[in-house]
Every structure is written in structure tokens, then in C-alpha cells.
Amino acid sequence: MKCKFKTFAYSLFSIVVVSAVFFNCDLTYSQTDSLHLKTGDILVGELMEMKQNVATFKTDYSDSDFKIKWKELVQLKTKTGYLITLSSGEHFSGQLMSTLDGEVAIVSQTDTLATTTLKDIVFLKQIDYSFWGNLEASLSLGYNFAKANNLSQYSVRSNLGYRTKGWSASTSYNHIVSTQSDVFTTQRLDANLVYKHYFKRKWFGLGEVNWLSNTAQNIDLRTLSKLGFGRYLIRTNSLYWGLQTGVSFNQENFSSESLSNSRSSSEAFLGTEANLYDIGDLNLLSRVVVYPSFTESGRWRTDFSVDIKYDLPLDFFINLGLSLNYDNQPANTPNKTDYIFQTTLGWSL
């Protein structure tokens, strides 16, 4: 009887040990996405996202996520679902699996959705049905002080975005304030709210509202509403370049004591935006938009901006930004041009 009990106990113990080992292995390797690199290394873990030619990869054996250049991959296999954008402008939801001939299949649970190559995948992000999983944000701050004339200057630059397979929404806020002894305080504030709806073949619809307050041009508040469409001419793992056009309505209120303290106008707009991000830790974003007026003869305006971002460890960054506004028929001021240059330190989510 004792022998049978010992045999039973030993068998039960063996089952427990084997089960523990099995489940421990399953927990340890539950993240089963795999990346094959040009160096011959194979990473096993969880591919979180890829944007601007950099993949974020999480493993159980490291507290920090890996940042990997997408062009260093030769093969991959995922069991995670992603929102995927190709250089052709097509959007998919599915998993990724490399084939032996260098192609990548985008698959669902029941079908192959498309076949592409690694270099033609320009964006992917884990499908997350929670609100916070699709949110992106950044905040940068700057401060300058000069004792000689008690000059103080404060800068804030922030961005917040939300993206799904078919659309994206974003907002930005940029504010700079300068105070100085015996001089009036000057400030400039610009903010926007942008909605894009993505169609096939790199086309998208655009709805946007911009706000500007600028003491240099006596603009108390300019509200610009835009409706149009655009297309990405180039979209790769190293850059994108696109055009947009449409109509806009411009409502301006001025801080001058002149009798004419507001005006409205209807305009067209034509803009272009380019982003270069395969230049080491640097990211260069530039955009220019021209607004010829329909209702004010001969008037046209231009908004131009360029941002150079240098990535630091732990998601910190240094940002150098230039913003310029030109109006060939400004109201209540001789200043046709105003620009600001900002240097800020920030953090991105």
C-alpha cells in the first residue's frame, strides 16, 4: 500500500513539476513575435509599433524596450494584431509573416489580406481597443533669462494625437511670452485642431481649425477654419512628402484702438509638408501654407514652420523650432512679417 502511495505521489509530483515548467515557459515566452536581424540575431518578444523607420520591441529579459532600425530587419513573424500602413497608402488590420522569398504577408485569422515587403511598411501599431492605447503626446518647455535688462522668456510646445485605421485627430499648442523692464509684454500663441480621414491610394480628407494671437502684428485672435483634401506624394521609411489644398474662412480681431478692429475674409489654401526621420536621432519636419484671398483683392498670407528634433534617452528630446507668418496687407500695423525661434526640452509619450 505504501509502495502504491509512493508511486502515486511521485507521479503526481512529476505532473506538477512538468506543468509548472510548462506554464512557466508559456508565461515567459507568451510574447511570441520574432524579429530576424541582418546581424543574424533573433529577438523574441513583443513588437509594439514601428514609426519613422524605428521599431519598438519589448522582451521579458530587459526592463527597457529595444529601439531597432526597421531597415535592419530581414524577416519577422507576429502573433499580435496591428494597424498597418503601406507606402502605397493602403491601410490594413492584421498580423505579419515573412515568406522565404523576402515578401511579407499581412494575414487575418481566416485569410491573407495583402502581400508586401518590409521596406513598403511605413507604419504599424498594435491594435489596442482602449482609448489610451491609441494616444500620442509630447510636451516641451523652454526658459531664458537675462539679468542686464530683466528679460524673461517662457516657451511651451505641446502635441496630442489619436490615430485609428481610418482616421486621425491631433491638436497642438505653442505659446511664447517675453517680459522686460520698461517694455510692454509681448506674446505669441498659436494652436490648432486637425482631423484627417484616410482614403485609398494616399488620399485624405482634411478639416482644420487654427488660432493665432500675436502682439507684434496686433492680432488679438485670428480663427482660421479650413476644409480640403490632400495626398502623400512620397511615403517611405525615411520620409514623407504631401500636398493639400482647399478653402478657408478667416476671422480676425485686432488689439489696436483703430476703428477697424475686425475683419473677415474667404481664402483658398495650398500647402505642403515634408518630414525626414531616417537621419540618426534627428527628425526634420517642415511645412508651408499659402493663403490667397477670394474677398480681398491682392491679399495673400503665408505660414511657414520648421522643427528639428533630437532624440535623447528615456523619450526625452531637444526641439529647435522656427515659425514665420507673412501678410502682404496687414491691418493696423506696418509689420508684414513676424517670426519666432524656440529651443525647448521635452518628453514624448
Rank of each mutant, 00 (worst) to 15 (best):
residue 5 F to Y: 06
residue 7 T to R: 01
residue 13 F to K: 04
residue 14 S to P: 00
residue 15 I to K: 00
residue 18 V to R: 05
residue 23 F to V: 05
residue 25 C to K: 04
residue 26 D to N: 04
residue 39 T to Y: 05
residue 43 L to H: 09
residue 49 E to P: 01
residue 54 V to A: 02
residue 54 V to N: 04
residue 59 T to D: 06
residue 67 K to Y: 12
residue 76 L to R: 06
residue 77 K to M: 01
residue 82 Y to C: 12
residue 85 T to Y: 13
residue 88 S to L: 04
residue 95 Q to T: 14
residue 98 S to V: 06
residue 102 G to E: 08
residue 104 V to N: 08
residue 107 V to Q: 07
residue 110 T to R: 10
residue 110 T to V: 11
residue 113 L to K: 13
residue 129 Y to T: 13
residue 131 F to I: 05
residue 132 W to H: 08
residue 133 G to V: 08
residue 134 N to K: 15
residue 139 L to D: 05
residue 140 S to C: 04
residue 142 G to I: 05
residue 147 K to G: 02
residue 148 A to P: 00
residue 149 N to Q: 06
residue 151 L to T: 02
residue 155 S to P: 00
residue 155 S to M: 05
residue 158 S to P: 06
residue 159 N to I: 10
residue 160 L to Y: 03
residue 161 G to I: 03
residue 161 G to E: 01
residue 165 K to P: 01
residue 166 G to W: 01
residue 169 A to G: 12
residue 169 A to I: 15
residue 171 T to L: 07
residue 183 V to S: 07
residue 187 Q to D: 11
residue 188 R to P: 09
residue 190 D to T: 14
residue 192 N to E: 10
residue 195 Y to L: 15
residue 197 H to S: 03
residue 198 Y to M: 06
residue 198 Y to F: 14
residue 205 G to E: 00
residue 210 N to Q: 10
residue 216 A to H: 05
residue 220 D to F: 11
residue 223 T to F: 02
residue 229 F to L: 05
residue 230 G to T: 07
residue 234 I to K: 11
residue 240 Y to A: 01
residue 242 G to R: 13
residue 245 T to G: 14
residue 250 N to D: 15
residue 250 N to V: 02
residue 252 E to V: 14
residue 253 N to Y: 12
residue 254 F to Y: 15
residue 254 F to A: 01
residue 259 L to E: 01
residue 265 S to V: 00
residue 266 S to H: 02
residue 268 A to I: 13
residue 271 G to W: 07
residue 271 G to H: 09
residue 272 T to P: 00
residue 273 E to C: 05
residue 273 E to S: 13
residue 276 L to K: 04
residue 278 D to S: 15
residue 279 I to K: 15
residue 279 I to D: 08
residue 288 V to T: 09
residue 289 V to F: 14
residue 303 D to E: 11
residue 307 D to G: 07
residue 309 K to F: 08
residue 315 D to R: 15
residue 315 D to L: 08
residue 319 N to E: 10
residue 323 S to Q: 13
residue 323 S to F: 10
residue 325 N to Y: 11
residue 327 D to E: 06
residue 335 N to C: 02
residue 336 K to L: 04
residue 344 T to E: 07
